[in-house]
Design a binder for these strands. Structure first.
Length: 765
DNA sequence: CAGTGAGCGAGCTTCCGCTTGACTT
């Protein structure tokens, strides 16, 4: 029998470590935390110094039983992560497994390499109770905030809402950005770009130069172009300077989510799920990390790879330091487990994510790129303005050969290129000078990854919670994730060529958005309420401030219950005040104007079923209501947009004696034929312009589908109860009122009764 | 499941951070 039991947090980690430790060691995993505050109530005894009431959640019972059995008669090594949560897990294990805190071996390692693990075994310590207490303070504070604030919202706004230290700040960021966008007024301006060539250049090789001055009006832009007609253009200054570009550090959870979003179009939760698969297959290191550190083993492998692929001059050791507030660095950066594996087998998403991780990791240990940046300033005689041409030439590509990081900003409109050799005093001639109308842009809405980035900058949330936090605020209805079609607009362009100025009007699309996060009316209402009643809690610095207190607890400077008491007093008074204060449950109605048809007031407000617009009633006549569409906000909807909402439901006509109506329901746009035959509109259909013919098509398709769904694929004369049907998620077995999944690889149309009965019997246990 | 918007009120909702499977009709 093995004499030792090592307990880690993750089962994949357990497997790897077991290989390193040899036969005297059994390695098991706790699957994260094994105890938590009681879920039934507050889980904190306020009268007894905030004593936490811990219990083992149902789904952890099995793990705990197994660990208890394994710990019997063995030396236990607690190898949970080296951070606050990991220390707490170790302590909970001592409590639950009945181990003494003093005398139980606690070991830590930051990388899963044989050397690191053997070294850890050589240097055990005991559980650090100060650090554990800092975690208890964190846990208790979060519970107090979440479980005291949420019920205030149920009472004062609407049931089932939630508030918390992390999620409420995430919503606040989105709300404030949205209000900046609503308040933004786009202003037009004219941007001037010239195509020049050197006067002495027979080939007339063109290069671009831009005027840093922007003109506010067409008149000014035109006047400028006219003044250029007979002007002489002379090079005033040529500046050449070398610049270095450095590779980005290896991935953390947050930067991986950002790059996978930008480069691969993956959502935050998709990225995490694919990364989890790679991790479980042993292909990458742990994917929930805030560290940019690489093990010395990985560094050596990087150097070897780079030397093999590109030669030694491309390799350069970089030691990255985290800039993240509150980073705990319990793990390595996210990197391939074996750097020499350049590609893997797997799903397309797995391959692409792995490739991204591999390139980022290897590039981080490559030499910086060297570029020459040239700036040429061109003077215009008779005018103060000067054109500026910039060019960048890569002198040595370095890491750029393998990888370059993407940015959130729109790509520059004109790519910078090679500039001709010119010196001060040279004359240049223009081929064209164009003044193009542009428009100032509102700030961009956050997407998932840029929100994560902002939260990380504020030190709010942890790698393990970024993805779930986004899910939570979407599930609560505070936020929607959506794409928007671009809108068309026209712009003017003036061109000076051949001594005369011509003008034309062009059109472009703008404002196209993909998967952006936008707050809802409820999100805004809740945010405003919290800001009013609980400003200190949703302050951007709240987390950073309490983290300082947790650090004091971890240092042993203050006891955790004293820290919590100091917080709870003022906090609970805020809760009491909020409950006593009358609130405006639905917020204020916003008057949009008068309905041009009736002259009656049109208002937007939150109703029982969510945000809506209303045309007020008068005397006997009832008011008319219409729900707002996803993405429309009470704060920003216009009168015209509101009136358009009353265009539905709309009668298309009659088909086979029954009326056909198109409308918007809870599940999107639908057509209704007669009283109760409903069909959803397809993706390209627009309820506002749908024709009767299309309505008939949709209803017919719907009926055909229903017939198909009700016709079993397989039935058996011997047992009429047994049916194989086609459902939303593919074929399934229906037997005596219950449904059963068909195992992968089985062809449903070839199933026999025996096989069906076997599947039913197998799923019973 | 598909339009609604009066009012009453039982019983329920909720946090953040660690970890993976489970598994729909």
């Amino acid at each position: 029998m093995q004499e030792n039991l090592v307990i880690v947090e993750s089962p994949a980690k357990a497997k790897t470590i077991e290989k390193f430790l040899g036969k005297d060691f059994m390695v098991k995993s706790s699957f994260g935390h094994i105890r938590d505050l009681s879920k039934k109530d507050l889980g904190i005894n306020l009268a007894d110094g905030f004593a936490p009431v811990y219990e083992i959640p149902k789904d952890k019972r099995k793990v705990v039983d197994e660990l208890t059995r394994a710990a019997k008669d063995r030396t236990v090594w607690l190898a949970s992560d080296e951070d606050r949560e990991g220390e707490a897990i170790a302590w909970h294990l001592t409590e639950v497994l009945g181990l003494p805190v003093e005398g139980t071996k606690r070991i830590v390692f930051h990388e899963i390499t044989k050397r690191a693990i053997l070294e850890a075994i050589e240097n055990p310590r005991t559980v650090d109770m100060n650090l554990v207490n800092a975690q208890q303070a964190r846990r208790v504070l979060d519970r107090l905030v979440g479980f005291e604030l949420s019920p205030v919202l149920w009472k004062k706004v609407r049931p089932s809402l939630s508030a918390g230290r992390v999620q409420s700040v995430a919503v606040r960021l989105l709300v404030e950005r949205e209000r900046e966008i609503i308040a933004f007024r786009s202003t037009p301006y004219f941007r001037v770009v010239a195509q020049f060539h050197a006067a002495g250049d027979k080939d007339r090789t063109l290069f671009k130069a831009e005027l840093p001055t922007r003109f506010e009006s067409r008149e000014e832009a035109e006047a400028f172009l006219r003044s250029c007609v007979g002007a002489t253009f002379t090079v005033a200054k040529v500046e050449e300077k070398p610049v270095q570009r450095y590779p980005a550090p290896p991935f953390t959870t947050s930067t991986l989510q950002q790059e996978a979003g930008r480069k691969l179009g993956m959502s935050v939760s998709q990225t995490m799920s694919v990364a989890q698969h790679l991790y479980e297959q042993g292909l990458i290191t742990y994917m929930r990390t805030d560290s940019v550190n690489l093990s010395t083993l990985a560094l050596a492998q990087c150097k070897e790879q780079i030397t093999n692929l590109y030669g030694e001059k491309y390799s350069s050791y970089h030691n990255y330091k985290t800039k993240t507030k509150g980073a705990q660095e319990a793990h390595e950066a996210i990197r391939p487990s074996y750097i020499e594996r350049q590609a893997i087998e797997g799903t397309p998403a797995e391959k692409r994510l792995y490739d991204l991780i591999w390139k980022r990791t290897v590039a981080s240990q490559m030499v910086s790129a060297e570029l020459d940046r040239t700036t040429i300033t061109i003077a215009i005689d008779g005018r103060r303005e000067q054109f500026v041409a910039t060019g960048e030439v890569v002198r040595f590509d370095g890491f750029l050969r393998l990888y370059s990081e993407s940015t959130d900003e729109e790509p520059a409109e004109d790519s910078e290129g090679l500039l001709p050799k010119l010196s001060a005093g040279d004359e240049v001639l223009y081929q064209t000078i164009t003044a193009t109308q542009r428009f100032t842009m509102p700030p961009a809405r956050y997407n998932e990854a840029s929100l994560v980035k902002r939260l990380e900058e504020l030190g709010i949330g942890r790698p393990s919670t970024y993805a779930p936090t986004i899910t939570t605020i979407i599930n609560r209805g505070y936020v929607v994730k959506q794409s928007k079609e671009g809108q068309k607009r026209t712009y003017e362009q003036l061109t000076l060529a051949g001594g005369s100025v011509s003008a034309k009007t062009l059109s472009e699309s703008f404002g196209k958005e993909k998967n952006r996060l936008q707050p809802t009316d409820i999100g805004m209402l809740v945010n405003d309420y919290l800001e009013q009643q609980f400003a200190p809690i949703i302050d951007y610095n709240f987390t950073a401030n309490v983290e300082k207190e947790f650090d004091r607890v971890a240092e042993g400077d203050i006891t955790w219950d004293k820290m919590i008491a100091a917080f709870y007093g003022p906090f609970h008074r805020m809760v009491d005040t909020a409950i006593e204060t009358q609130s405006d449950k639905h917020g204020q109605a916003r008057v949009l104007g008068a309905d041009p048809k009736t002259g009656r007031t049109v208002k937007a407000r939150i109703g029982r079923y969510g945000p809506m617009v209303e045309i007020e009633g008068e005397g006997e006549e009832k008011p008319r209501f219409a729900s707002l569409k996803k993405g429309q906000l009470i704060e920003s909807i216009t009168l015209d947009e509101a009136l358009a909402l009353f265009a539905l439901p709309r009668t298309l006509g009659e088909w086979e004696g029954e009326p056909m109506v198109v409308g918007l329901g809870r599940f999107g746009a639908y057509v209704r034929w007669g009283k109760s035959t409903f069909a959803s509109l397809a993706k390209g259909d627009d309820p506002y312009t749908l024709t009767l013919e299309r309505g008939v098509e949709l209803i017919k398709a719907h009926q055909a589908q229903r017939t198909a769904a009700n016709t079993p694929i397989r039935s058996f004369a011997e047992d009429p109860d047994m049916l194989v049907k086609n459902g939303r998620y593919g074929a399934y077995i229906a037997y005596k009122g219950k449904n059963y999944r068909i195992p992968k690889g089985t062809k449903p149309e070839e199933l026999t009764l025996d096989e069906c009965l076997k599947i039913v019997a197998a799923s019973k246990k």
